[in-house]
Structures are given as structure tokens and as C-alpha cells.
């Protein structure tokens, strides 16, 4: 019994974001009780699902002490390629097989770009920041060039990926929940998971200890690319269209911010799925609450930016303190 209480205390100490989220809800409920309406809750859950996919992928990279800034561009490219697969005149149009091939193509794009990133960082020893920032531009550019800036409508069957339900729960929620569980198992319970942390904790020590650093880093970036593709599938279905400008670059800050608020360290080696989920819930709540309060877009991003900055400051101090011990 005592042990349990100790665990709960540790939990609350490790994840102050839980308190923040709770406080936020308590603050907003008296003003806008409709925040707890089933309709808004579903909106919120879907927002969480979308952001969580990206945040999970981002966290794999953050844990290895890297960063993936290319996500919005990867999503855009996957979106337009997927949409054009559906539109292609292959005789499969309108069948479930076309949906399947479109999704497969999208996932492959994420994996391929992720592989390029991982290879550049691990084997060419390029800074992750630079490699992925460059991709944000060139991959985004390719997406625009490929479509000549046009949007490509998608088929009814494809849209079901977003709007479909199983046992009354939206398909994307199922998908992301399974993904989160898998990510948790991978990080906490497999050889690869432990290696991701080790590489982020100490690259040199990992090298000397015979950890296959190259493979591990490539894995992280490919996981990130894959998650970006999955998010692209959902966004594309939701918008009914493949777009070379699928999401605002703000999504990038949201997913990194959510991870950091949830205890993932920008310095590598730290981060758990449970924390990331809480961080994502908080970021989604901030957006949702501020919207409900009728604040303008720029107010929302100002507050979000501020909160994320604060989380980064805390992360920095925590890393310093523990380093100084």
C-alpha cells in the first residue's frame, strides 16, 4: 500500500503537466461548461490523436538527442502522393485496394525520407537540426512542384479512414491508441528501446560499449517519418484532399512542445510514452480552451509558445542540476 502511494507521488512529481491540465479545465469549466460536452470531448480526443502520432515519432528522435524538423513537409509530400495514387487511372480507383496502395505509398515516403535523415545523422555525422530543416524546405518544395500547387481530391473510400468508426469509436483513435501502446512496449521492453535511450544518454559510451549506433539512429528517424506519414493519412482524409500545404508549420512546435512538456528531454536519453500522452493532452487542451474562450489565433499561439518555452527552461535546469550532482 505504501509503495503504491509512493508511486502516485512520484508520478505527480514527474508529470506536473497533469496538474496544469486539471487546473486549466477547472478554470475554463465555469465560464464555458460546454467544454465538457460530448461533442467537444470528441473534438478534443481527435485533436489529441492527431498530435500524438506526430509527438510519438518526434520523441523517438528526441530520445536519441536528435530532432526532426521535417515533419510538416513529409506529411505534405505523403499527402499529395497518396491522393494522386487514388486519382490514378489504374482500374482500381474506388476499390478498397486503391485505398490500401495509397496508404502504403504514403508510409513508404515517410520511411524513405526518415532513412535519409537517419543515414545523414548517423553515418555522415551531420547535425540533425540542419538535415531535417533542409528537408522541411526541399521536401515541401517537391510536394508543391509535384502538384503545381494544386489540391488533389480523394475518394469516398479513403475518407472513411478518418470518419469510420469501430464500436462507436473513430478509427483514428483506435489506430493511435494501438500505436501508443506499441511505442510504449518498444521503448520500455525491447533491446532497440534501451539502445535509443543509451545513444541519447551518451553517444561515446554507447560506441565503446558496442551499441550499433548507426542502426539505432536510423531506426529513430524512420519511426519519425512513419509517424508523419500516418498523421498525413488522417489529415488527408479529414480534409478530403491531398494538399502540398497540408498543415501549418506550427504543428512542429506543438509536437516537440508536447513531448518536452511530457518529460522528454531535448538533451536526449529521457522520455516516456505516458508523459508524452499527457503533454499532448495538455497542448490540445490549451488550443481547445482558448478557442472556447473566443480568443484569436495569435493569442492561442502566443500562450502555447510561452508554455512550451517554460517547459524547455525547466528541462534545461533539470538537466543541469542532475548533471551537477
Amino acid at each position: 500500500m505504501r509503495g503504491n502511494i509512493g508511486h502516485i507521488q512520484l508520478f505527480l512529481r514527474d508529470y506536473p503537466v497533469l496538474w496544469l491540465s486539471l487546473g486549466l479545465v477547472l478554470l475554463v469549466v465555469p465560464i464555458r461548461p460546454e467544454i465538457l460536452s460530448p461533442l467537444n470531448l470528441e473534438t478534443l480526443v481527435l485533436a489529441v490523436a492527431l498530435l500524438l502520432v506526430l509527438s510519438l515519432g518526434q520523441s523517438f528522435v528526441l530520445i536519441t538527442a536528435g530532432i526532426d524538423l521535417s515533419l510538416p513537409a513529409v506529411m505534405s509530400l505523403a499527402s499529395v502522393v497518396g491522393a494522386s495514387c487514388l486519382a490514378g487511372d489504374s482500374g482500381l480507383t474506388g476499390t478498397p485496394v486503391s485505398v490500401f496502395t495509397a496508404i502504403l505509398a504514403m508510409l513508404l515516403i515517410g520511411l524513405a525520407i526518415g532513412f535519409l535523415h537517419g543515414f545523414s545523422v548517423a553515418y555522415l555525422r551531420m547535425p540533425a537540426f540542419l538535415v531535417t530543416l533542409a528537408s522541411l524546405l526541399w521536401v515541401g518544395g517537391v510536394a508543391v512542384w509535384y502538384t503545381e500547387s494544386k489540391r488533389i481530391p480523394v475518394t469516398e473510400e479513403f475518407i472513411q479512414v478518418w470518419y469510420g468508426r469501430l464500436l462507436g469509436i473513430p478509427l483514428p483513435v483506435w489506430t493511435v491508441a494501438i500505436l501508443a501502446v506499441l511505442a510504449h512496449l518498444l521503448l520500455s521492453n525491447t533491446v532497440m528501446g534501451k539502445r535509443l535511450y543509451a545513444v541519447g544518454h551518451g553517444l561515446q559510451t554507447s560506441l565503446v560499449s558496442g551499441v550499433p549506433i548507426g542502426r539505432t539512429i536510423v531506426f529513430a528517424y524512420m519511426a519519425s517519418g512513419l509517424c508523419a506519414s500516418i498523421a498525413a493519412v488522417f489529415y488527408t482524409a479529414r480534409l478530403h484532399t491531398g494538399s502540398p500545404e497540408l498543415v501549418e508549420n506550427e504543428v512542429l512546435l506543438d509536437c516537440i512542445g508536447a513531448a518536452v512538456i511530457g518529460g522528454t528531454s531535448l538533451f536526449g536519453g529521457k522520455g516516456k510514452v505516458i508523459g508524452i500522452v499527457m503533454g499532448v493532452v495538455f497542448i490540445a487542451l490549451v488550443g481547445n480552451c482558448l478557442n472556447m474562450l473566443g480568443l484569436r489565433y495569435w493569442h492561442v499561439i502566443m500562450v502555447k509558445g510561452g508554455v512550451i518555452l517554460l517547459a524547455a527552461v525547466l528541462d534545461t535546469f533539470q538537466t543541469r542540476w542532475s548533471g551537477a550532482e
Binding site: K194, Y197, H201, G202, Q204, T205, V211
Partner: peptide
């Protein structure tokens, strides 16, 4: 720099080399 993961625990450090044997 080359022997330890200073901010990780004993278990994590000790299993770094032989991890595959436990997978």
C-alpha cells in the same frame, strides 16, 4: 564520457553491452 551513461541508473548502465542476450 566513454564508460558510463552518467544520468542513467545501474541497471541501464550494466546491461549496455550484453543487452542482446536478454532479448
Amino acid at each position: 564520457l566513454e564508460g558510463l551513461l552518467p544520468s542513467a541508473g545501474i541497471v541501464e548502465n550494466m546491461t549496455l553491452v550484453g543487452l542482446e542476450r536478454f532479448g
